[in-house]
């Protein structure tokens, strides 16, 4: 248990604890319609701000795999994409709950929501593609190239297209961003630590997935799963 090796996990946990405490206890701006739900900014938006760096790390490992063909880079690209998808599911589900109480519908016709749904399908296809190829070299290369496409499409669908049309989300279409009028400095002091904390926590999850993945390459994967679960 060397501190030099595990400090970033502790930092991530501490930042998340701080954001949970400050996110519920600190003062927030009194805004109509949003009311107390403005606090969801600390939790719901953090999921998306975690997913994007995890997907970026995944693409970097995919590019590395294309240049060095190492099985480790391929496995890392996969586990980071899996963890990113996990955070995007959390982001979507929490966003649906928030949308119900502020925009009046679980899935309002919003370009950002639709873009997110498309993005999740694109990443779903990434895992189907991986599952359908048996040859590890072929699987690594083809899925690495697909992953680059998937990342670019994600940026287009959730970062660019919603900004070009009308959207309910702040910072998109005609709507001003949270930053312009209601993400005051008190909220920033909670939101940014929350994002950093969740990114570190996401890297930790990806690391554990990676170790399980590497172990199950040599063993029957069912044995490993049973050993971890008991």
């Amino acid at each position: 248990m060397a501190i030099s090796k595990h400090w970033w996990k502790g930092l991530g946990i501490a930042l998340i604890f701080y954001s949970l405490y400050a996110g519920l206890m600190n003062d927030v701006p009194r805004l109509p319609i949003l009311n107390e739900s403005i606090r969801n900014l600390y939790f719901h938006v953090s999921m998306w701000f975690t997913m994007i760096p995890l997907m970026l790390i995944s693409v970097i490992f995919s590019v590395m795999h294309l240049s060095n063909s190492s099985a480790k880079s391929d496995m890392r690209a996969t586990v980071f994409a899996e963890t990113g998808l996990f955070f995007s599911i959390l982001g979507l589900v929490t966003g649906m709950l928030w949308a119900k109480f502020t925009w009046g519908d679980y899935f309002p016709p919003d370009p950002k929501l639709n873009g997110t749904a498309i993005t999740m399908l694109i990443y779903g296809a990434y895992f189907i593609l991986r599952g359908s190829l048996k040859n590890p070299d072929q699987r690594g290369r083809i899925s690495a190239i697909y992953n680059i496409f998937a990342f670019v499409l994600m940026i287009v669908f959730i970062g660019i297209l919603p900004r070009l049309t009308q959207s309910l989300h702040p910072g998109n279409g005609g709507n001003p961003g949270f930053g312009t009028y209601d993400l005051d400095n008190n909220m920033r002091a909670v939101f940014y630590p929350a994002v950093i904390g969740w990114i570190l926590f996401g890297v930790w999850i990806a690391q554990i997935r990676y170790r399980i993945g590497m172990l199950s390459q040599y063993n029957d994967s069912e044995d490993i799963t049973n050993e971890i679960l008991d």
């Binding site: 946990i13 998340i16 604890f17 949970l20 405490y21 519920l24 930790w204 999850i205 554990i208 170790r211 399980i212 172990l215 490993i224 050993e227 971890i228």
Partner: peptide, 24 residues
């Protein structure tokens, strides 16, 4: 309630990691 849930998640992560160390 929120803090208890997160403590539980962290304890679970640490236990999982210890188990992985042992298997490795």
């Amino acid at each position: 309630v929120v803090l208890i849930i997160f403590v539980g998640i962290v304890v679970n992560m640490i236990r999982l990691e210890r188990k992985l160390n042992r298997i490795e």
